[in-house]
Amino acid sequence: MSRPRARERKPAWLRTFIPKTSPLVVTVCDGCGLYVIQDRENVWETWDCGLVEGDDLTVAIILGRPVTRITWLPSVGHPLLRSTCGSAGIMPDGQYLAMHMCHLARISVKPFKPPKRERPPGKPWGGPKLSKQEIAEFKRIWNMPYSQLKHEKTPTNKVGQGDEKQTLF
């Protein structure tokens, strides 16, 4: 049995959307020859390749096309599909895939872009708050060979033990 022949080029965004570790699989539909996404985790379901959101979501609801919600898992780097029951579970700001109906036009062909990781703002480093003597002592110890450093006595005036408050960050 031969594999079905694709009638279109494979969308490039599918490589980042569905990595090899995902339970989702990109394949060619046997009937119409279009690329589809198959969820093979529990019940095998077939979805069109195209992000449904905004006005496209309204079109999918009017046409009665079932949709599934995309939940991006940044920890594993691939999406998880959550089923919706009719209009329950559909939110206007969500991202969805429409169920594949062979020989019918797709609701959308918009590519998926994974969300950017939010990073908390960091505190700017204000530079060293050490005296010139402490910086010179650090440089001296830093540049000392290890064989000589083993025999070095610990100084009684330790760096950062003065009256000023030292913090790491």
Results as ranks from 00 to 15, higher is better:
residue 113 K to E: 04
residue 120 P to I: 11
residue 121 P to E: 14
residue 115 P to W: 08
residue 118 E to C: 14
residue 124 P to H: 12
residue 123 K to Q: 11
residue 134 E to V: 00
residue 139 K to F: 12
residue 118 E to V: 15
residue 139 K to H: 13
residue 120 P to D: 14
residue 112 F to S: 03
residue 117 R to L: 15
residue 120 P to G: 11
residue 140 R to G: 07
residue 113 K to L: 15
residue 140 R to A: 03
residue 133 Q to M: 05
residue 116 K to E: 04
residue 134 E to Q: 01
residue 119 R to H: 06
residue 123 K to A: 11
residue 123 K to N: 07
residue 132 K to E: 06
residue 143 N to G: 06
residue 121 P to N: 10
residue 125 W to Y: 13
residue 119 R to G: 01
residue 125 W to G: 11
residue 140 R to M: 03
residue 126 G to W: 04
residue 118 E to F: 15
residue 137 E to K: 04
residue 132 K to R: 06
residue 113 K to M: 11
residue 142 W to F: 15
residue 111 P to S: 02
residue 144 M to N: 06
residue 122 G to A: 07
residue 122 G to V: 06
residue 129 K to D: 08
residue 131 S to W: 00
residue 124 P to Q: 12
residue 143 N to I: 01
residue 127 G to H: 01
residue 143 N to C: 05
residue 114 P to N: 04
residue 136 A to E: 08
residue 116 K to R: 12
residue 116 K to N: 04
residue 134 E to C: 01
residue 133 Q to N: 10
residue 116 K to S: 09
residue 128 P to S: 14
residue 118 E to M: 15
residue 137 E to S: 12
residue 138 F to Y: 11
residue 129 K to M: 05
residue 130 L to S: 06
residue 136 A to M: 01
residue 144 M to F: 09
residue 119 R to Q: 09
residue 122 G to S: 15
residue 118 E to P: 02
residue 141 I to K: 09
residue 134 E to G: 02
residue 132 K to F: 03
residue 145 P to F: 04
residue 139 K to R: 11
residue 113 K to Q: 15
residue 120 P to N: 14
residue 123 K to I: 10
residue 134 E to M: 00
residue 116 K to Y: 09
residue 136 A to Y: 04
residue 125 W to A: 06
residue 137 E to Y: 02
residue 144 M to V: 00
residue 136 A to N: 07
residue 133 Q to H: 03
residue 140 R to F: 05
residue 121 P to H: 14
residue 145 P to G: 02
residue 133 Q to D: 12
residue 144 M to S: 09
residue 142 W to I: 11
residue 118 E to A: 11
residue 134 E to S: 03
residue 126 G to P: 00
residue 130 L to H: 01
residue 140 R to W: 05
